[in-house]
Design a binder for these strands. Structure first.
Lengths: 198, 198
DNA sequence: GTCTATATAGCGATAGAC
DNA sequence: GTCTATCGCTATATAGAC
């Protein structure tokens, strides 16, 4: 059963890669994306540096795999937000979930949404995954009568703004993240159907 | 004239320090705050590394001086925004100026408002300078009937959100920065006198 | 695949001559 | 104050034995 053995080997390899990524996330969560070092990563994973290179061809390949994991989590977060018959409540629920997603793991947020690693650009596939998650938000906004792409950009700016201020200026508190309800109401009162458009 | 000679020496020293900082800004503007290297800095400034240490005791001291310069520019920007008899127009003018200030020099924005240099924290004086600039904004908001500190936080989040999205996702365009007028209207229509407060 | 050992390069910072 | 020279360390990445 060569094919079965091949799959088994593949699974072993995948789980070994996953273990390296677990250690990578530990380091990045502790000291930020820029602090990831191959030596320290290997030490944390209980292997040596050359072994890391047996699974990832470069440090950027590790960042790309991490970016893809983060993007996948982001997509799943969007999918997990329940849909009701109240579009406003749905958007609010998504906003709360988004802010919590970012604030609860600031380094992941920095890797996914800011360009915080000099010299690293996500691969097109990984990036596309992250962008596609925006489609869910576009749909939620449409159900609230918001169709203008500019207003989608305003929405992302407003939510990201809360996250960025929270992470940068009050990393252990909730000074900005607690404002998500107010901000969502402000946005919807302005741009949801019935609001003025210029 | 020992005192005069002392002042002259001080001026020389200050201008030499300033020259180092000019080179530091060149490097940081080119490759981001994390890319600042003492060797490259010295090379760019036309001196050697030990000479840099004659003027700054460490790399972090350079970052702190840069932070102070950026904070000073920030304060001056706020002071330069003209005041009219129309509070809404004044806040709008300040918002436009702020976004332009950040977007036109993203690395400076990252150094000043994000925690983008691992291990660097601005000195209390430099930080206080940056915080004090917020007082101007507080006054502008008060003239618009916005007094709740939470609403000041919302205002900073909203403006920073535009900047962050612009810098992270469209660094050479104006996809988000052009929305500053819309966002300001949304904010004022919601929170300026006459708006609902809960 | 995993190791030891190392290549190659860069880093921040300092000693000591002048 | 400015230099040459260097310390001590870290970085990513690879060669080659097993």
């Amino acid at each position: 059963m060569l094919k079965g053995e091949g799959n088994w080997r593949e699974a072993r390899r995948a789980s070994a890669r996953a273990a390296v990524l677990v250690a990578a996330w530990e380091l990045v969560r502790a000291d930020g994306p820029a602090a990831l070092s191959m030596r320290e990563l290997a030490r944390r994973a209980g292997i040596t540096t050359p072994t890391v290179y047996a699974y990832f061809e470069s440090k950027n390949a590790i960042f790309d795999a991490m970016f893809a994991e983060a993007a996948q989590s982001f997509v799943e977060l969007k999918a997990a937000v329940p849909t009701t018959d109240d579009p406003r409540q749905d958007l609010l629920a998504e906003a709360r979930a988004f802010v919590e997603f970012c604030v609860s793991d600031a380094p992941r947020y920095q890797l996914l949404f800011q360009r915080s690693v000099p010299g690293f650009t996500p691969s097109p596939e990984s990036y596309e995954l992250a962008v596609s998650a925006l489609e869910v938000t576009r749909g939620l906004l449409a159900r609230n009568g918001v169709h203008d792409p500019r207003h989608l950009d305003i929405w992302t700016a407003v939510t990201v703004g809360l996250v960025d201020q929270q992470v940068s200026n009050d990393p252990d508190g909730d000074r900005w993240s607690r404002l998500v309800d107010d901000v969502t109401q402000m946005f919807l009162d302005r741009y949801a159907t019935g609001g003025v458009s210029s």
